[in-house]
């Protein structure tokens, strides 16, 4: 459940922060969540990947869908891609990895700052 909440919170921050800050602020948001909410490193990374990936996929996919790929097709041609769908995949991948690494870093920072030993349970929560 905590895992779902973390994904949800990271997703919200990944959606909101770049409206006001740089595009990579998604990493900061995810890192903050993992710093505040306990979880294993593995799950923190995965949570970030899922949250960031979903948000970037959702946004790029809905824009692309609503505009009939009008611009993404032109951008795809500029970078020699056959299909604009690859741009959605690429965006998703970047969103996922940047958020995932941010989250992992936050989680690792938490483990330094928090004296409590990580319990085995955390790996399955």
């Amino acid at each position: 459940m905590k895992f779902i909440i973390k994904i949800f919170l990271m997703g919200i921050l990944s959606y909101l922060l770049p409206l006001y800050f740089s595009w990579w602020s998604v990493a900061l948001g995810a890192g903050l969540i993992s710093l505040l909410i306990r979880g294993s490193n593995f799950n923190s990374f995965n949570g970030g990947v899922i949250a960031g990936g979903l948000v970037w996929f959702y946004l790029s996919f809905t824009i692309d869908n609503a505009t009939n790929s009008l611009l993404s097709e032109k951008i795809a041609l500029l970078v020699n891609l056959k299909d604009s769908i690859w741009l959605i995949y690429a965006s998703t991948l970047i969103g996922a990895l940047v958020t995932g690494f941010g989250s992992l870093t936050g989680s690792l920072l938490r483990s330094i700052l928090s004296p409590k030993k990580t319990s085995r349970n955390d790996y399955v929560s």
């Binding site: 770049p18 740089s22 595009w23 948000v55 946004l59 790029s60 824009i63 993404s72 965006s91």
Partner: peptide, 9 residues
């Protein structure tokens, strides 16, 4: 490629 700030916008 950022959907917030990149070409998608």
């Amino acid at each position: 490629l950022s959907p917030h700030q990149g070409f998608w916008k």
